[in-house]
Design a binder for these strands. Sequence first.
DNA 1: CGCACATGTCATCGTACGATGACATCAATC
DNA 2: GATTGATGTCATCGTACGATGACATGTGCG
Lengths: 186, 186
Amino acid sequence: MTGTQEARRRDSARSREALLRAASELFSERGFDRTTTRDIGRRAGVDPALIARYFGGKTQLYLAAVEAERGDAPVSDLLAPERLRQVLEGAARRGLVPILQVGVQPLSDPAAHEAARAALHDRLVEPLHRRFTAEGRAQPRLRAEIVVAAVIGIVLGRRSGAFEELGEVASDDLAALLQETLQGGG
Amino acid sequence: MTGTQEARRRDSARSREALLRAASELFSERGFDRTTTRDIGRRAGVDPALIARYFGGKTQLYLAAVEAERGDAPVSDLLAPERLRQVLEGAARRGLVPILQVGVQPLSDPAAHEAARAALHDRLVEPLHRRFTAEGRAQPRLRAEIVVAAVIGIVLGRRSGAFEELGEVASDDLAALLQETLQGGG
DNA sequence: CGCACATGTCATCGTACGATGACATCAATC
DNA sequence: GATTGATGTCATCGTACGATGACATGTGCG
């Protein structure tokens, strides 16, 4: 076996990662349904047929992308200092967006929907729920869900092309503006 | 011509309305892309080919649905008493949802996207913008867009199946909870 | 009644998509 | 360098969709 270091002209791991990366980007930009396996292959510079070989299919590739994002640093709760800004900023380039999208519309694929829903819950809702519970607030879960849903609307709204200023404002300014409000907790 | 009162077995106006109504419902439930002309025809009890005849195509049917919703009572601004509750409540049955969806993801069809965007602006963003301007707040447009985006996240979040309590809470309770917070204006 | 148009029905086209399997090519081992 | 498995390429299948046009049937009018 060739050492893992040197770049081989044929490298399944490299292809796998290229597909995973391209898929994360495209799922973020267009969502699950509007992303085609051909698009993913083109951006990855890899034949789309390899999606089936390495992941099993488009759905499993989506699951892998969600799982990969999940492995990242936990989001902690949205109201912790800097966290909100990180989500606003990082959503643009990282794989968090596919997880946010499920908060706003069911996915056509049930397995994909459930995976995204679970990730959304674990990464965003639950940390906030814990904070509100610790603070002794009434209806902590509902309030957590409201804040998360509102933030999702704002994050996705920035990328929707439907708002004039929301898409242009700097993440820092937006975060500051939001933090004071959301502190109220919905 | 037969009197407009009596039900004719063949009635283009009736078919047109049935299609428009079914389209509004389905666009609300599944969005533009996931709604097929065959679905619309089935729910309307009308042959899908009539969509082409009476509207020109799926896109124009969508435009007609948005326009019809637009003809309804103006939303006024979201923070007026009762308005928020009405949006939360009414979104479930009326044709407002297709307009909200554009705030969260671009539509695949450019004409449909633009129509929905314009409706979103006129019906929700602009009234709020006027209120904030009248109140002399800083960045009135940005704040209006933030509030609208947040409300969109919450309204769509209720129907996404991704939240536990948000989908169940009564519109009145939710409206009360939100009003106090959003009064802050983002 | 019989004509002409309005309305409804149906078959089908072209396109795009995810998936699959046959085939080609490379790489490690003997 | 021959063999064998890993990796990459390609053609194609089946399905679903929006659209279209040919055709059928009902309706109002002379």
